Amino acid sequence: MGSTVEITSSFIEGAPPGELQDVVKDIKTLTSDDDPALVAKLKPAFEKYNEEQMVAVKLSGASDYVLISSYNKLSSSQYYDTASSTSFTFDQTTQKPSSPQSYTHDSQHSTLISSLLKNLATHFAEHYPPTSSPSAYTVCAVPDDSKIAILISSLKASPKNFLSGRWRTSFLFDPSTNTLSGSIRVNVHYYEDGNVALSTSKQFTNVSVEGSGNADSVVRKVAAVEKQYQEEVNRTIVGMNEGSFKALRRQLPVTRQKVEWEKIRGYGLGGDLRGEGKR
C-alpha cells in the first residue's frame, strides 16, 4: 500500500474537470488529523493536474483567459501569456493567478504566432459556445523554439446539474515540415444518482497542412481534425446507446415509467411491474 502522499496524489491527478477544489476539500476532511500539512506536499500533483487539464485562468484586468500548460511555463509557479505579453504567478493549489507583469517571450516564430492567435480567436468564437466556466486558447512557442503549441481547453461545469466536462485540443505545429502532431481529449463526469465518467482521446501524428503553412491554413486544418473527431465520438455514443447499453438492461420497466424506489414496498410486484393494471 502506498504512502498517504502517493494515494492522495492519485486522487488529485484523477479529479474530474472543474472539480479539483471539491477533491481537495474531501482530502482535507479525511486526512486533517493524520497530516495537517499534507496539501502542501501535494504541489507536484496539483501542478501535473493543472497543466494536463490546461486549466484556464483570467489575469487581473484582462478580458480573456489564458491556459496553464507545460509549453508556456517559466517555472513551477510562473507562466506567460503570449496574447497579452504578460507573465504571472500561479498558485497550483488554489488555481489562482497573481502578480501579472509585462513580459515578451522571444521566438523566431513571433509573427506566425500573432497570426495564429487572430485566426484561432475566430475559430474559438464559432465552435466553442460561451459558458459560465472558464475556457480559452493559447498559442506559444515550445521551450526549444522548434515548434508552435496550439492549445484549446473548453470546460463546462454545472454542479447544479451534476455534470462537468472538458474538451482539450493540443497540437504542435512544425513550420519546417508543415505538419501538426498532438491529441484531442474529452472527459465527462455525470454524477446524479450515480457516478458515470467518459474518457476518450485520439493521437495525431504528422498531419499535413495544405498550402504554405500560413496561419489560416493551420487553423483550418485544426478545425477539420476537431470536427472529424467530434463526429467519431458522436457516432460511438449513439452506437453505445442503441446497442451496448440496451444489452445491459431495459432503459425503463415494462410499465414505461421510472420506478419510484422510495415507494417500492407499495408496488404489487406480481402485477404492477408486469404492467397489469386493475380492471
Score class of each variant (00 low, 15 high):
133 S>A: 06
65 Y>F: 13
145 D>P: 11
113 I>L: 01
203 Q>C: 07
82 T>M: 00
137 Y>A: 02
82 T>N: 06
89 T>A: 06
75 S>E: 06
53 Q>L: 00
256 R>Y: 06
188 V>L: 00
142 V>N: 15
277 G>V: 12
46 F>E: 06
135 S>I: 01
228 Q>V: 09
168 R>Y: 05
137 Y>L: 04
23 V>A: 03
174 D>A: 08
263 K>E: 09
108 Q>E: 15
247 A>M: 14
3 S>R: 06
232 E>L: 04
233 V>Y: 12
268 G>V: 14
197 A>H: 13
203 Q>H: 11
95 Q>I: 01
273 L>P: 06
193 D>N: 10
270 G>S: 08
230 Q>S: 09
237 I>F: 05
99 S>P: 00
97 P>K: 04
9 S>L: 03
53 Q>M: 08
64 D>K: 12
16 P>N: 13
271 G>F: 14
222 V>A: 01
94 T>P: 08
2 G>M: 00
194 G>S: 10
211 G>D: 10
27 I>T: 12
106 D>F: 08
193 D>H: 09
152 I>G: 02
188 V>N: 03
32 S>V: 12
94 T>A: 11
124 F>E: 09
74 L>M: 08
124 F>N: 11
45 A>W: 00
45 A>S: 09
167 W>E: 01
215 A>Y: 04
219 V>R: 00
